[in-house]
Amino acid sequence: MRFHTRKWIKPQDLNPNGTLFGGRLLEWIDEEAALYAIIQLENPKTVTKFMSEIDFKSSAKQGDIVEIGLEVTKFGTASLTLKCEVRNKMTHETIISIEKIVMVSLDENGKAKPHGKTEIEYVKNRLES
């Protein structure tokens, strides 16, 4: 799994218990998955279709740095399926895991659009062509 983004837990990210608000973390995950899928599928009209069970394993507190990891598990005709893990950067303790996030590439009418991709492409490889 590759960890792409880090977030610093600030006061506005906390719930009444003084720990990271789960909704904020899910917002960050959804944004990270969307950005990753948009870049992979080369389509800015890519949306979240499905997110499987969310498993909160530990919490984070103000001042902690968390990192969001994504891994491609499947390329569909118009979709990209990802697995996600968020962990504490310093302790590497897992905070949350999501087994399946499905992102779908859309056309200009909002319908699923085949993307023709079958494997992960890295920006450095695209620039070499």
Rank of each mutant, 00 (worst) to 15 (best):
K45P: 00
V72G: 04
G63M: 12
T77R: 15
G76H: 06
E71M: 03
E93K: 15
T48V: 07
G69A: 06
T94V: 13
E71V: 00
T81S: 10
F75H: 13
K49E: 09
T46S: 00
E67I: 03
F56P: 05
T77N: 15
K74V: 00
I101G: 09
E93I: 12
P44A: 06
V47F: 09
I96E: 05
E71K: 06
E85V: 14
S97T: 08
I68M: 11
V66E: 03
S58Y: 02
F56Q: 14
S52H: 02
K74L: 05
T94W: 03
E67P: 06
A60N: 05
M51I: 15
E93C: 05
D64L: 10
L80V: 01
V72C: 07
N88M: 04
K45Q: 12
G76Q: 13
A78M: 07
T46R: 00
Q62D: 11
E85G: 04
K89T: 08
K45Y: 09
E93V: 10
K57P: 10
K74I: 01
E42W: 02
S97N: 12
S58C: 01
A60D: 08
T46P: 07
K100H: 06
I68N: 04
S79D: 01
V66A: 05
L82H: 02
F50A: 02
I65N: 10
S58F: 10
K83C: 06
S79A: 00
D55T: 09
N43M: 06
S59E: 14
I96Y: 01
K49P: 01
T73M: 11
A78I: 01
K61R: 10
V47P: 02
V66I: 15
T73Q: 05
T81Y: 09
K83E: 14
T73S: 12
E85A: 07
F50C: 08
A78W: 01
E93S: 07
T77D: 08
T73I: 10
K100C: 00
